[in-house]
């Protein structure tokens, strides 16, 4: 496994592709996070809100995206993690998590982080600072 300290600008951490999003994923996240907004778990509620179906919690995807860095937590920690929610995630979507080095300093490395769906559209995008 590459160490983050050895990465250079433009380097990427290995992509992670998630299993297709399931209803159970979202029910589990609702329970663990305490976010019981029914547009994430109940079809009729999602449709009443004008959606074609239930959508993932944005924070479910943001939570998943951070796991690219989990194998590196012995090296440092996530100091800053800023995300803009850009698109909805539906049941069955296949999300790929990505992180690319944009800036390297002595004490920290800044990454561009993205979660993209099966059409290669970013659903989440932002910046993460990993500090040593």
């Amino acid at each position: 496994m590459n160490r983050i300290v050895d990465l250079q600008q433009g380097d990427r951490l290995p992509f992670i592709q998630l299993d297709p999003v399931s209803r159970l994923d979202l029910i589990k996240y609702a329970g663990a996070s305490g976010d019981f907004n029914p547009i994430h778990t109940i079809d009729a509620e999602a449709e009443a809100a004008g959606l074609p179906g239930i959508i993932a919690h944005g924070m479910w995807t943001m939570g998943n995206l951070a796991k690219i860095f989990t194998p590196h937590l012995e090296e440092g920690f996530i100091q800053h993690y800023a995300i803009r929610f850009k698109g909805m995630v539906f049941l069955g979507d296949v999300i790929t998590l990505k992180a690319t080095v944009v800036e390297k300093q002595d004490k920290q490395v800044t990454f561009e982080v993205q979660a993209a769906n099966q059409s290669d559209k970013d659903v989440l995008k932002g910046e993460l600072v990993f500090a040593f």
């Binding site: 589990k28 996240y29 663990a32 939570g63 796991k67």
Partner: peptide, 11 residues
């Protein structure tokens, strides 16, 4: 929570 985001890592 770690399980719900698919990240049940030892840490």
């Amino acid at each position: 929570f770690a399980e719900a985001i698919g990240d049940p890592a030892p840490i």
